[in-house]
Nucleic acid binder design. Structure first.
Lengths: 333, 333
DNA sequence: TCTATTGGTTGGAGCGCTCTAATGCTGTAG
DNA sequence: CTACAGCATTAGAGCGCTCCAACCAATAGA
C-alpha cells in the first residue's frame, strides 16, 4: 500500500532521478536506451508520477477545476462532457466538485477546488454571490457557464435566452396561435432573458403578452395551469420556462380533460432527456450544451496558456426542436 | 494572480512559519493572542493552505476520490450527496471524475484521480475490468458501489436486486395479478439479480415467469411491449428493469389504446426523479441511494483511519413506492 | 593538438507545507 | 537561588517532484 517514487525508479533503472523526470515528461533529449530502461523499471514498479508533487515543483498545474452547482441536473453532465473533451486533448485533467445548489456548500466546494491550485476554474451556474466569484478571480482564471457577470477578469458562456423564447413564439405564431402565455421561471437562472424574449416576440407579432408567475418545477407548472383554467384565461398555447415546468403543465391540462396538442400546445425549454422521452415528446428549445463546455474550456486555456486578459463573452444560439406537443389551434372555441 | 504562502502570513503576523502551520491545523497549543494575529494576517492576505503541499509534507491525504461512471444519471448524484455528507463531517474533501461509461475514459479518470494520491477511492458502477480495479486496490483502499467484486481488498455496497423484484411481484400479486411479465435489462448492471428475483418470486407464488428481453431505455421498453401485443401474450402487469424502460412501456401501451393502470399495471425500478413526476407517477422500487454513498464513505474511512483490512459487503434493502401505475386487473379479460 | 560545440546526463536547490526535536520562557518546588 | 517542569514557539529536515546550471564524453573545427 506504499507507492513507489521517482527515486525508486531511478535506482532500479540505474539512472538519476532527473533522468526519470525527463522520461516522464516525454523530453526528446533522452537516449532511446535509457528511456526504455526507465519505462521498464516504472512499469515493473507500477510507478506513476505524483501530480501534486509535480505541480508543486513546477509551479504550474494541468488541472482544471469544475464546480457543478447541481449534479442532479443532466444539463450539466453534457457541459462537463464538452469540457472534458477539450481538456483531455490539450493535456489537462479535470476535477469536479459540487455545490448542491446551496451557497454555503458551493463556497466550500470552491475552496476545496482552489486548494488544489488548479490552472483555472469553470463554474457551472453558480449560486454564490458575485463578490465571492470576483474574489476568487483575483487568484486564478475563471469561466462562468449559464450565469452572466460583469467582472472583467471573468469569461462567460451563456445561451441567448431571448432568442430561444423568440424561436418558440415564432413557431407557435406560425402555427396560427395568437393567445400564448408564458409560465415564468421567477428568480431562476436565465428566467429573465426568456421572459424578455417572450414579451418582445409577442409584441413584435402585435400580440398581447400574458406572463404567469411560476417556477422551474413540474408541480409549479401544474399549479400555473390550474390557476389559468380557474380564471378562465387559458390561452391556446403555453411557453414554459423549462421542460419540467412544461411537463407539469401538460399533466394539469390532461387532468382537466384537455388534449395536448389538439386543445393546447405546449413548448418547453432546455431539451432535457425528459423532453426526448416518447411518453413526453415535448417541443422545446435546445441549448448546445456540449458546446458550452468546449467553449468554456477553450476560454480558460486561452487565459492559462496564451495569457489572454480581456474577457470573452460567448452567447450561443439555441434552436427549436419540434416534437408532438405543438399543433395548430382548433380544439378550443 | 499569485497566491500568498505560509511564509507571507508568518512574516506579516511576526511569527514563524511553523506557528502558522499550527494555527491552520487548529492546534490547541497556540496562545490566543498569536492565533488571532495569524488569522488576521491570513485573512488580510487572502491566504488559504495549499492542499497539495500539505498532503505532500504530511504524507497523508484528506481527499476521497470519486469516480462516477455516468454523470448523466441522476442516480449517482444522490450517491455523491451521501458520500459528501459523511466526508465533510469527517473533515475530508471529495474530488470527482467521470468515466462516461467508456472503459478507456474511465481508466484515464482512475489514473487522474490516483495522481492526486487520495486517501481512498469510491467507484460508482465502474465498467473497467476487474483486474484494473484489483491493481488499483494494491495502492489504496477502494469501495465499489453498484458493482460487486470478490477481491478481498475491496469493499462493496449494493442493493438487493432480488429482494426489490420480489417486492414488486408481491405487490402486483396482492392486487390480484397472476400474469406478470418482466422486461429484462439484458447485460446491464444489476439486471441479473432483478431477473432472478422476479423468477423466484413468481415461482414462490406458483405463477409462470415470462421474461421478455429488453434494455435500460424507454425505446427498448416500448419495443418490448409492441412485441408482446403482436404475439398476443400481453399480461395484466409488467415489471420493468428500470424506470426508463417502464416509461417507454407505458407510452407503447397508451399508443395501443390501453389504459395504465386500468388495463395494464406497470412497475419500474430505481425511483428516479422521472418516476416522481406527476405526469408519470410511476410505481417503482426505491434504492436508498444517499445511504449507498454514506456507507461507501464510512467503509473507506474505516480503512483509511482505523486500518480495517477485512472486506465489507453491504447489501441494502430496497423499498416499494406505490404511485399511480398499478391497480387491480380488470380492464383486460 | 587544442578548443568549441553538441547531446545526454546529473547534482542540488527549492516548491509550500508538516513534523520532530530543540529552544526559550515562565512558574513552582526543593 | 537553583532545578525542573510545562508550555508556547521555532529551526530545520524532508515529502516527490521540476528546473537550472554544471558536467561529461564524443565529435567537429581551427
Amino acid at each position: 500500500m506504499v507507492r513507489p517514487t521517482m527515486e525508486d525508479v531511478a535506482l532500479r533503472a540505474g539512472v538519476s532521478r532527473a533522468l526519470v523526470s525527463l522520461v516522464m515528461r516525454n523530453s526528446p533529449k533522452v537516449s532511446d536506451a535509457r528511456r526504455a530502461a526507465v519505462l521498464k523499471a516504472a512499469e515493473e514498479l507500477g510507478y506513476s508520477p505524483h501530480a501534486m508533487a509535480r505541480s508543486l515543483a513546477s509551479r504550474t498545474s494541468t488541472v482544471l477545476g469544475v464546480m457543478v452547482s447541481d449534479l442532479h441536473n443532466a444539463f450539466f453532465a453534457e457541459v462537463v462532457d464538452g469540457i472534458d473533451e477539450v481538456a483531455r486533448e490539450q493535456g489537462f485533467d479535470i476535477i469536479i466538485n459540487t455545490g448542491g445548489r446551496s451557497p454555503a456548500r458551493e463556497r466550500r466546494a470552491l475552496e476545496s477546488l482552489q486548494s488544489f491550485r488548479p490552472a483555472g476554474l469553470i463554474l457551472l451556474s453558480p449560486v454564490v454571490p458575485a463578490t465571492a466569484i470576483s474574489k476568487a478571480a483575483e487568484q486564478l482564471p475563471i469561466v462562468l457557464v449559464a450565469r452572466s457577470s460583469r467582472v472583467s477578469t471573468v469569461d462567460t458562456v451563456n445561451d441567448d435566452g431571448e432568442q430561444g423564447a423568440r424561436l418558440a413564439i415564432d413557431h407557435l405564431v406560425s402555427l396560427g396561435h395568437r393567445r400564448i402565455a408564458h409560465l415564468d421561471g421567477g428568480e431562476g437562472t436565465q428566467a429573465g432573458p426568456r421572459r424578455r424574449g417572450y414579451v418582445a416576440a409577442m409584441e413584435a407579432h402585435g400580440l398581447t403578452p400574458q406572463v404567469v408567475s411560476s417556477e422551474y418545477t413540474d408541480t409549479a407548472g401544474a399549479r400555473a395551469i390550474r390557476s389559468l383554467i380557474e380564471s378562465g384565461t387559458l390561452p391556446t398555447a403555453i411557453l414554459s420556462c423549462n421542460d419540467f415546468n412544461a411537463v407539469g403543465a401538460i399533466s394539469a391540462l390532461e387532468d382537466a380533460g384537455l388534449r395536448v396538442p389538439a386543445d393546447v400546445s405546449v413548448v418547453g425549454y432546455d431539451n432535457t432527456s425528459l423532453a426526448a422521452l416518447r411518453h413526453v415528446s415535448l417541443t422545446t428549445i435546445d441549448q448546445p450544451r456540449a458546446e458550452f463546455g468546449r467553449l468554456a474550456a477553450l476560454a480558460l486555456l486561452q487565459r492559462v496558456r496564451d495569457g489572454r486578459t480581456e474577457p470573452v463573452r460567448h452567447l450561443l444560439n439555441p434552436s427549436l426542436v419540434v416534437r408532438n406537443t405543438t399543433a395548430p389551434p382548433g380544439g378550443l372555441r
